[in-house]
């Protein structure tokens, strides 16, 4: 596995520090599962988290998460030391499916604070109000010029994944946008 993206806790100066923080975190173990619904149910049983049936939703349990990215595509996220892949492969060996380890693909940011949605909307033209994008809503979208995966993990906390080579760009876009946040 590749070294984690060098990332330090980024906080904003003065009174903005409490309003939003951008933190690089460990991506954990990540797998893309693709297959029909019946096999997705098998996969969910082996993974210990049901693969969501609703579009753009995430299910979580015991440090594992399953995010529905498309009609036949889910992202499975586990803790860094989770050896779940072998048991998944074993459980799914009789079914037609694709299961790919993408743990080294993305850099992950955790963006937290009361102004998080406002900050993200500087570069993401998506309605992030709690009504249309509630906790455990997730989707791929565009941030400035790059494709990202966005997941609202708490009311005021988003998990943002981006291809590693774009990590610095995404960080800097958000850092610059943060200076434009209105004073509290």
């Amino acid at each position: 596995m590749v070294e984690p993206v060098p990332s330090t806790r980024f906080t904003l100066g003065n009174n903005r520090a409490e309003r939003v923080s951008i933190l690089g975190i460990a991506p954990g173990r990540q797998f893309v599962f693709r297959g029909p619904r019946e096999v997705a149910d098998q996969c969910g049983a082996a993974f210990g988290v049901d693969l969501p049936a609703s579009p753009c939703r995430a299910n979580r349990q015991d440090g594992r998460a399953a995010l529905r990215l498309g009609p036949d595509e889910w992202l499975l996220i586990a803790l860094p030391d989770d050896a779940v892949l072998a048991s998944l492969r074993h459980s799914l060996s009789r079914f037609a499916h694709a299961l790919v380890d993408v743990s080294s693909s993305d850099a992950v940011f955790e963006i937290r604070g009361p102004s998080t949605a406002l900050l993200l909307n500087a570069a993401i033209p998506l309605d992030l109000s709690p009504k249309t994008f509630p906790v455990d809503a997730c989707t791929r979208t565009i941030l400035a010029k790059v494709g990202v995966l966005l997941w609202r993990t708490e009311q005021e906390c988003f998990r943002l994944q981006v291809a590693r080579s774009f990590a610095a760009y995404v960080h800097d876009v958000l850092a610059e946008a943060a200076w434009g946040l209105p004073d509290a």
Partner: peptide, 18 residues
């Protein structure tokens, strides 16, 4: 910007995603 409803995501999304 246009809002386009994706029939798979079942929500209206910004044009730049398409």
């Amino acid at each position: 910007m246009l809002l386009i409803r994706c029939p798979y995501c079942e929500t209206a999304r910004p044009e730049v995603e398409f």
